[in-house]
Design a protein around this nucleic acid. Structure first.
Lengths: 122, 122
DNA sequence: ATTATTGTATTAGGTACTTAATACAGTAGT
DNA sequence: ACTACTGTATTAAGTACCTAATACAATAAT
């Protein structure tokens, strides 16, 4: 499906992708994931790489696995909300740090964000 | 000096760091850099890793090297301005993309940026 | 019972990055 | 001339990540 960047481990990129999909309910709470082999086909990567990403997400509590049936998204809604909030805050914090390091004023930064955000809406 | 993350090649992180310092004139146009061996000491990495970062920056035109004297920041002010603009735009664009993918509204995002930016000023 | 599919584990090989240890050519300062 | 510093190059080793090719136990569907 997608292509991945070579500057970061693929399994981390897959983790981030699935986290986003969980946080935005593109993967619904309690919903089933494709199998390791299916996802590997879709992502065009080795099944082992998918396996690694998924087991890490499971370790974080976002996924559950039934050994012989498949994998499911957690149905803990508060955890999903917390995930969404966390991804949003981390993105914002990262951006603010970058902007500060570039000595860009608050007004300039807010203006730039507003322009790009408005420009991309339909 | 700093520590580096393990999820991205160190030489790329050093490149990004030096780019920021050039863009904000912490490294002044035409100014001299520390030697490969000095920087390796400061960054706590191998000289080869510094060498790689610096030669890539040179390939991009941001640094110049005198083989037996040392390395200098470019004195092309328009290039430095373009670098600053580019780093700022890329950061903003990256943030806007992330926010869109999280289905966060423009108003929410701008509000979050404003709060964090104001909160961090002295 | 048999078949297909699930997650999981293992072994091997290749590539990129990093480190370590040198070495060399050129120049500035003495 | 000598010394100390530049950038640069090379060789070897270790680690992390990715891929490939299997294999196994467990279950759902038939």
């Amino acid at each position: 499906m997608d292509q991945f960047q070579s500057t970061q481990p693929i399994y981390l990129q897959i983790m981030a992708l699935i986290k986003r999909q969980i946080a935005t309910a593109q993967l619904r709470p309690g919903g089933q994931l494709g199998s390791v082999r299916e996802l590997a086909m879709n992502y065009q990567v080795n099944p082992n790489t998918v396996q690694r990403a998924l087991s890490e997400l499971e370790r974080e509590g976002l996924l559950k696995s039934d050994r012989t049936v498949g994998r499911y998204v957690t149905d803990d809604l508060s955890m999903i909300e917390a995930l969404h909030r966390s991804l949003f805050l981390e993105a914002t914090s990262r951006y603010v740090d970058e902007v500060n390091e570039l000595n860009v004023s608050a007004d300039e930064a807010i203006k730039a964000v507003r322009i790009q955000l408005k420009g991309e809406n339909t």
